[in-house]
Design a protein around this nucleic acid. Structure first.
Lengths: 243, 243
DNA sequence: TCAAAAGTGTTCTCACTACACCCATGT
DNA sequence: ACATGGGTGTAGTGAGAACACTTTTGA
């Protein structure tokens, strides 16, 4: 505990983003193609270094969100996943990265044409199945981020962050099904979601679709913590746990 | 994404520890009395700066665990809580701190006489009730750490980390009761714990106490994830939710 | 009139709670 | 004998799964 006279080493601090959304009823993540070494040409999570010494961590995450994905931070779910600081995780030197999870409502446009032209949405399954590899330890970060999202769907109103300002219960169900990778019974889901006080509130209007009865339209309610929770069905050992 | 020619600012990286244990059937945390400015004389979580640029984050946590608490890291639960990096959280300058949660079995000796003489175990309740204040943002870190421990008791075998290598089911129950701050039915707890395959395994021997029937002795089983989980009884609104 | 999607009612099952009860020990 | 804590049996309760059924729309 002799912290006098000796100056501790300083490290470079970066922020990486796991930005999830729902597109074509699929859970997708925003990836960028790296334009510089190392891992030039490989896919990676969007991110970057802290701007200056006065920038907060979450503040930096918001800035990267805007710069690299064109997403305006306000009214967008953003939470810290964890910090990844193994020496050797970046060949450039000692770089410690704080990872954030962001949830965006399904955007109509596929990729941001703004700043990072190489950015595009990729189905999470493609990465998880190793059909597409990521730079650095970004695979681990993505896995942790997705798992975080899966957990939080159970007990928080995170699912509404995937939807726009209004949505139907079927929309919400598609979120749960895509993130969890399961099929849910629409009838039971309907009642379960309605049974959580303050989770969703009806707007009064309905939404017409191609066919079938129009669905009531809802918006996110005041409750952020779900009580009772929407419990994820347990993957009863089909043998493909780790796959 | 113009990361050429411009060199990003570096920050000082520290590691802070929330070390929890069970003493006198109370959840306690290890605190140290600060010997230097800032916050000289105040209580704080043990921690310190990274030793050098090649030291891993978890590695640094293990080192601090040994240096400040005299706890040998091996076979000791240690997991990352999160990273706290608000500018201004430390008056000395921009210091980003990665917080770790450590769980130790109840030690017979109250405080480590080793290195940091000012260290001592303090009931978590005393801090949470603001009867004892902490330096920096260590109160927030402690709250997050305790909440993490509470959550993990439900679905992982974390509770066994509070016990020694062997324990009785009543010992385990005391862990759950202390961490959650609730009372549990011993009969139902007994069966519930036994009903989780691989959670605990009987050693065959029994432990005699002052009075009553001797209890069977167990040790931690191979399973780290509890299925079915030990569900925490919900605090049915006694009105003191946020307090 | 039919298909398709929204929304409702009802049964069954299973896990958990509560508590009565038996077992093994020290005093 | 009896107090104390360990361990077992069992009925009642409540939430969720499964699924039959009704409602409302477009074609």
């Amino acid at each position: 505990m002799s912290e006098d006279r000796w100056t501790p080493p300083s490290v470079l601090l970066a922020v990486d983003l796991v930005i999830l959304t729902l597109r074509d009823s699929l859970l997708q993540v925003l990836l960028v193609e790296r334009g510089v070494e190392p891992y030039r040409g490989a896919w990676a999570l969007p991110g970057g270094f802290l701007n200056n010494s006065d920038e907060g961590l979450k503040e930096a995450a918001h800035r990267e969100l805007l710069e690299e994905a064109g997403l305006n931070g306000s009214q967008l779910h953003l939470e810290q996943i964890g910090t990844y600081g193994d020496p050797g995780r970046d060949p450039r030197g000692r770089i410690v990265s704080v990872a954030y999870l962001a949830i965006a409502p399904g955007l109509p446009e596929p990729a941001p044409g703004t700043d990072a032209a190489g950015a595009s949405w990729v189905p999470v399954q493609e990465v998880l199945c190793r059909r597409r590899t990521l730079a650095f330890d970004h695979y681990d970060i993505l896995v942790d981020g997705v798992e975080r999202a899966r957990e939080k769907l159970e007990r928080t109103a995170l699912a509404t962050a995937f939807c726009g300002s209004t949505f139907t219960i079927a929309d919400l169900q598609r979120v749960y099904e895509a993130v969890w990778g399961v099929q849910l019974d629409p009838r039971n889901f309907y009642r379960k979601v309605q049974g959580v006080p303050g989770f969703i509130v009806a707007t009064g209007s309905v939404r017409r679709t191609a066919r079938g009865r129009p669905a009531r339209v809802f918006r996110a309610g005041p409750c952020t913590v779900l009580n009772p929770p929407i419990v994820r069905p347990e993957r009863t050992g089909t043998g493909e746990e780790k796959q």
